[in-house]
Amino acid sequence: MAKDSNNKNLLTLENIESGYGKVKVLHNVSLKIKEGQIVTIVGANGVGKSTTIKTILGLIKPSSGQIKFKNELINSLETYKIIAKGIGYSPEGREVFGNLNVYENLRIGAYTVSKDDFTKRLEEVYQLFPRLKERKNQEASSLSGGEQQMLAIARALMQDPDLLILDEPSLGLAPIIAEEIFNRLAEINQMGTTILLIEQNVNLALHLSDHAYVMEKGKFVLDEKASILAQNDYVKKTYMGIA
């Protein structure tokens, strides 16, 4: 694909070390996302995928290394400032605000933008997820798992981010719903949003992505075009259950 060769880097991680207190989780992690790409990090539970995301978002501060977004160093910034630079985040477990209705959740997603942009963006997001429009006055806690995931993605899209980060969007969803979500992600990407995806459903993820990283024990062990990784025997055997 043409889009992964010539475009500018949107996000780069260089030699990141990070973790919780004295427990180091990430060891010398480097990653590059170019504008327009869909990049996936695959890996088993507990290898540091979510820690990588949390470090990018400043929820955890890296102990060394550099994180650059749009060529600007962001590793010492506070989370809300990093988000305002143009990152949308759909957290693991969806984390919608259960006490707010769908509309209010989306209002919070657009916290960093003006009222006019919010109104315009709301229509676009409702078009992408018509189900959310039907349920706009419903409390988020009363939505189904799939609807909550759509809401989490819609909320992340509200500020029209340059980079959309999704942590396990298919987790706990019926396969048909997961596929619907992934179709939406492809649409979102075609409209120009770069995507960083963390996923355990390796088959779906590699199918969607341009580039993929395989993480094991806090390190990237493979870093390839997704189409090539999908043919890799080790990946097939370890992550896709194909011998």
Partner: peptide, 24 residues
């Protein structure tokens, strides 16, 4: 109001609110 909604968001989950761009 936007501030009111943000207050309710922060009271539900501070970390997620931060990750939506809110200075908690």
């Amino acid at each position: 109001t936007k501030l009111g909604i943000a207050m309710r968001g922060v009271s539900y989950n501070k970390q997620t609110a931060e990750a939506m761009g809110i200075n908690s």
